[in-house]
């Protein structure tokens, strides 16, 4: 109950700040040749804001594709991301964001994403949750190297992949598979954080 009250307090007062996707974007600079910020697709966050991925420029992003109805790997993936969050030293943590993008735009409405954020206690200042059109999700997945298909039960089979984007949106490191040693990923995040501009 106490948690709930705190959450309501945070939600209504905006006390904890806005998610990374709601920050004022850095002045536009031409994206580098391999930057994912070249994409002009539009995405909606769980707080209802419509953005292009370029708004995330300036800070490294730890990205994974997921869906809230997932029964097998996604809860583990999000747990792993939270473990990584807990293992990062404060000075690194202050310079990186986490980005979850839904594979399941039909069921992952803004409300479903917001409920997921609350249920999994994803810190508002650090985690962005996005949904987009099926075509745009397919395109983003293709860029990240995530293969996926939906089965008859509505579950998505998908590559378990965590991608680190550097501050300008290029892929800096990829962590493939569940329950792998996170040490290389943590090291790569530390390195990318040094390039943060905000």
């Amino acid at each position: 109950m106490k948690t709930l009250l705190t959450l309501i307090f945070i939600a209504t007062c905006g006390f904890a700040g806005e998610p990374p996707c709601c920050r004022a974007p850095l002045p536009a600079s031409p994206p580098t040749d391999k930057s994912l910020y070249l994409l002009d697709s539009k995405w909606t966050s769980d707080v209802g804001k419509i953005v292009q991925l370029g708004v995330l420029r300036g800070r490294p992003q730890i990205v994974t594709l997921f869906f809230t109805h997932c029964e097998y790997a996604c809860p583990i993936t999000v747990n792993e991301l939270k473990t990584i969050e807990s293992k990062l030293p404060p000075e690194v943590l202050a310079k990186v964001d986490f980005l979850l993008v839904s594979l399941d735009p039909n069921r992952d409405t803004i409300e479903a994403l917001a409920a997921f954020r609350e249920k999994r206690q994803l810190t508002r200042e650090r985690w962005t949750l996005l949904r987009g059109s099926e075509d745009d999700v397919r395109e983003l997945a293709a860029l990240l190297g995530v293969n996926y298909a939906q089965d008859a039960r509505g579950q998505f089979a998908h590559t378990n992949l965590v991608t680190l984007l550097h501050a300008d949106g290029e892929i800096a490191f990829q962590h493939l598979g569940l329950k792998q040693d996170p040490t290389p990923l943590l090291a790569a995040i530390g390195k990318a954080a040094a390039g943060a501009r905000r």
Partner: peptide, 23 residues
């Protein structure tokens, strides 16, 4: 094309698919 869930990655061919692909 990226709905094909087989991996050419060496790790994928050695029985770790369950860790690589959800479902």
């Amino acid at each position: 094309f990226n709905s094909a869930l087989i991996t050419g990655d060496a790790r994928g061919d050695t029985g770790l698919e369950r860790q690589l692909f959800c479902g």
